[in-house]
């Protein structure tokens, strides 16, 4: 199962967000599976057509995903996924 972690600031919107294991073979499937556990999380990460939102990015094994439109980047059971969003503070 892929292991997914989140940038800490997402806890503002999803206080129960914790690192978790997800069975998924693509990033798109991972996002859909996460939404089953935390409703509205998927709609924060992707738009209504499944495209990655413009202020969000996802890294698989510390490498930025290639496909922002379909999130077809493959996952293995050993994949480590990290989800980040833009910050503005200075």
């Amino acid at each position: 199962m892929a292991f997914v972690e989140f940038t800490r600031n997402l806890k503002r919107f999803f206080p129960d967000l914790e690192p978790t294991e997800v069975s998924a073979d693509t990033v798109a499937a991972l996002v859909a599976a996460l939404d089953q556990r935390l409703p509205k999380l998927a709609s924060y990460l992707v738009d209504d057509q499944g495209r990655l939102r413009q202020h969000v990015n996802i890294f698989v094994d510390e490498v930025m995903v290639r496909d922002r439109v379909g999130l077809s980047d493959p996952l293995t059971p050993q994949s480590k996924v990290f989800i980040v969003q833009a910050l503005s503070g200075g």
């Binding site: 503002r12 924060y44 939102r53 413009q54 202020h55 969000v56 990015n57 930025m64 922002r68 969003q85 833009a86 910050l87 503005s88 503070g89 200075g90």
Partner: peptide
């Protein structure tokens, strides 16, 4: 912009 193509929509990123 390759990292974050556009700013968040209003309300999706709080300020310090």
């Amino acid at each position: 912009r390759c990292l974050f193509p556009e700013p968040p929509a209003p309300g999706q990123a709080p300020s310090c």
